[in-house]
Computed example of a mutant assay.
Amino acid sequence: MGLPKAVALINRTNHFFRTNWKAVTEQFSTANLKSLPKLGRANIYISFVDTVSARLDITTALHDCIGNSNFERTKSLYWLHIGNAKNTGQAILSTIRETKQPNSNLYRTVCNLPLVTEEFRELFEAQTDNNEPSCSLAEALKKQDLFIKSTLANMGAFLLWKLFREGMTQHRGFFFNLANFRSQPIMVD
């Protein structure tokens, strides 16, 4: 389409739901959050990165913006992180701050979902970043299977869809293996 992924996704979402969301096509950083206070903050952040350093940078930026908003529409609440390797990946929904939930007689509510970088810290510390550009499609496909990112994006979008549609979720994410077509849900504890 010739558009950044964030713009294409938000355009589709706005068209379907008749919302007026904005996509910010800037590198996500603490500096950008401070310089773009109205455009750079949101209730829900969605990241799709392959490197440990990018995940840690996002975590730092999200921690830095916790107390910086007095407006509900720019209060940082949730982070959906989607990441992948060659043919595996995961999507994990976290709370950026303790998030008050409505009272329920039917369900046990949870105010805090751990950040992916805290819950899987040991795994991340054992990894090394290899973010070298690929010069050809064949070279790129050695690093990542063709459909891993689109599959994870669709499954992650469905996780959010269920949350928006039903107002709750029993699953805060999943692990996925494209090579053997297995998906393992992560339940809300």
Rank of each mutant, 00 (worst) to 15 (best):
G67W: 03
F120G: 01
L163E: 04
Q127G: 02
A6D: 12
G156L: 01
H63A: 13
L141P: 01
H15N: 11
R172C: 01
L113K: 02
N68F: 04
L80F: 06
T51A: 12
L3S: 13
L160A: 09
G156A: 12
C135L: 15
S69G: 04
N70P: 05
S104M: 14
N177R: 06
A91L: 02
S134K: 09
F17G: 02
G173A: 08
A138Y: 06
M1K: 14
K162Q: 15
T95C: 07
S136E: 10
H171W: 03
T151Y: 00
K149L: 05
K5N: 08
L141A: 08
T95N: 08
R165L: 13
Q144D: 09
S134A: 14
I66Y: 09
R97M: 07
R97E: 07
K34N: 10
R97G: 05
K38V: 13
K142I: 04
K100R: 15
N105E: 11
Q184P: 00
L62Y: 09
F48R: 05
P114N: 12
I44D: 08
T128F: 12
S76L: 09
H81Q: 12
F164I: 10
A140S: 13
R182W: 08
G40C: 08
T60L: 10
G156M: 01
F175V: 01
A140Q: 09
G89Q: 04
T59N: 13
N103P: 11
R73D: 15
F176R: 01
E119H: 09
E119W: 03
F48S: 10
L56R: 11
S47D: 10
N84W: 00
W21D: 11
W21H: 15
L77H: 07
D145E: 15
N14V: 02
N84I: 01
G167I: 04
T19K: 12
R12S: 13
D145A: 11
R182E: 14
W21S: 09
F174G: 00
I92A: 00
A85G: 10
L62M: 08
F28N: 08
W79P: 06
A140E: 08
L160V: 06
A153M: 05
F181V: 03
Q127V: 03
A42Q: 08
F17Y: 14
I96F: 06
V188L: 11
T19V: 13
D57V: 01
G167A: 08
D129S: 11
Q184N: 03
L146C: 13
S29M: 06
V24M: 11
S183F: 03
T60V: 11
L39C: 07
E132L: 12
A31N: 05
E139P: 03
V110I: 14
T13Q: 09
G2C: 05
R108V: 15
H63W: 08
Q144G: 02
T19A: 12
S104A: 14
Y107V: 13
P133D: 09
M155Q: 06
V49H: 04
C135E: 15
L93C: 05
T151D: 00
I186F: 01
A140V: 00
A61T: 05
R165T: 10
N87I: 04
I148N: 08
L115R: 07
K162L: 15
F158T: 15
N87K: 14
S150H: 02
P114C: 06
T19E: 14
K162M: 08
